[in-house]
Amino acid sequence: MPVKERGYHGWEGSLAPRRLPWFPITLQGIRQVKDKKRAKLLFFFSAFPFLFFLIGVYVASKPELRFLDEITRVINDDSQFFDLFFTRSGLMFVLFLLSVYAGSDLISADLKFNSIQLYLSRPLKPIDYLAGKLAVVMFYLLMFSLVPALLLVAAKLLFSGTWSLGFSTLAAIFVYPFLASLALASLVLLFSSFSANTRLVIVAYVGFFFFTNMLAGILSGVVFNHSALGLLSPERTMRHLAALLFGTKAAMAAPLWVAPLLVVGVSLVALAWTLTRIRRVEV
């Protein structure tokens, strides 16, 4: 039909400022990640640590399974239980995989398809764009760390029938996954802002973790024989952080307060750097 016959019609509604201007970016990003290839498979495997620990909670609540005494003792110690869940259950690897899956292309694809200018020609600042993207990764990481942890709290309550959780442990259950997710999300977004080639981003991000872990291992165990150098490894730093938050035994000789400082510091530097890179994109 010719244009003239169709005719242009305006829109009668009114445009309202949003309190969280980045929120539509987050919602759209969440939908897009969910619709990616093999997303459901990854989400299924990501739930394994939770399922394993859920079985543990069930077993601990059954007096007839006394032969699993050692396990029961650990499960009944809330601090140790959640420290184990967050740091030794494979959850860290799951979160790492999720950060790659959900975050590696969030900025790099926008760079490739020149779409940052689409965002910034709307009433959005670069920081809103970054906040929207950060929230996408944070959503998936918290969905597989904080949410299962809270479900485990509920399961413990359900199976034991008593509330044994101390305030500090409960606070740690919230703080630890938040800080871990923030660190992973900000790092993956930083790497994502480095290149328009998502494969390159993934290789660099995986390489960074592999290299820092290896370097930490060599420096702390072979060259200097000082466990504090393990802080060079993000994974060991996160374990150190868990030791501080859950009050468990630290594996490194470094002061415990260094871990949150490092995690928050690295996250903030990564976010500031990413923001600078977004601002530098020619709109």
Partner: peptide, 30 residues
């Protein structure tokens, strides 16, 4: 919010159909 900008260079958001992309841009405008 009151400006519609059509840039010279090709730009789109990958993995979206036209309806999703257009409504998404509308949402971002409020």
């Amino acid at each position: 919010r009151c400006i519609g900008y059509m840039p010279e260079s090709h730009c789109l958001i990958p993995g979206m159909d036209a309806v999703t992309l257009t409504s998404y841009m509308g949402e971002l405008s409020g």
